[in-house]
Structure formats: structure tokens, C-alpha cells
């Protein structure tokens, strides 16, 4: 049983650690790999940064600058009015 995983495997486990709890073996494999691999250390830092950044903009969880066009707005307005009557 090898204690060495590839960078591609480290990347997958790093991602999965956000979706499920890794087991002790997986965590150990990550730690061993990181000792030997500066690029993967940077990768993990970047992934943590990215997750934090995406989370921090709660109010803007939308397509930026997307707006209803005039005809859709008009259609919705009419449906609201007819419901009110």
C-alpha cells in the first residue's frame, strides 16, 4: 500500500474535503504529499482562499448586472395586476 499519492489525487481529495469528512488515512496521505510538494501547498491555499471569497459575498449570489428586459417586466406587471383584480 503506497503512501504516496499523485497531485491529481491530492486535488480530488482537497475538493472532497469540502463535501464530506475525509478519513484518517486520506488525511495522512495528504499530509505526506504536502511535505514533498510545494505546488500542492499553494494549490490548497488557493482553494481555501477561493471558497472563502465565494462565501463572503452573500448578497451577490447572482449573475452580476443581469436585469429583466422591458417586455418581461411588462408581462409580469400585467400578471400581477390581473391577479389583483
Amino acid at each position: 500500500m503506497s503512501l504516496i499519492i499523485k497531485c491529481s489525487e491530492l486535488a480530488q481529495l482537497t475538493s472532497e474535503s469540502r463535501d464530506r469528512a475525509l478519513n484518517w488515512r486520506e488525511r495522512a496521505l495528504i499530509r505526506i504529499h504536502l511535505v514533498l510538494c510545494p505546488p500542492c501547498v499553494r494549490f490548497r491555499r488557493q482553494m481555501a482562499f477561493l471558497a472563502g471569497a465565494v462565501k463572503s459575498r452573500g448578497a451577490e449570489r447572482a449573475v452580476p448586472g443581469a436585469t429583466l428586459d422591458a417586455s418581461a417586466r411588462e408581462r409580469i406587471r400585467r400578471s400581477l395586476e390581473s391577479k389583483q383584480r
Binding site: 449570489r61 447572482a62 449573475v63 452580476p64 448586472g65 443581469a66 436585469t67 429583466l68 418581461a72 417586466r73 409580469i76 406587471r77 400581477l80 395586476e81 389583483q84
Partner: peptide, 19 residues
């Protein structure tokens, strides 16, 4: 005045749904 919701929040709702 239900149109007010559309006026104030329509674009934000649309952008949220579109994502």
C-alpha cells in the same frame, strides 16, 4: 401597489434565479 416589488426587487430576483 404590487408593482413596487417588481420595481425594487425584480432585477435582483432575476439575477439570483438566472445564476
Amino acid at each position: 401597489d404590487p408593482g413596487r416589488w417588481l420595481e425594487l426587487h425584480g432585477d435582483a430576483m432575476y439575477a439570483w434565479a438566472l445564476l
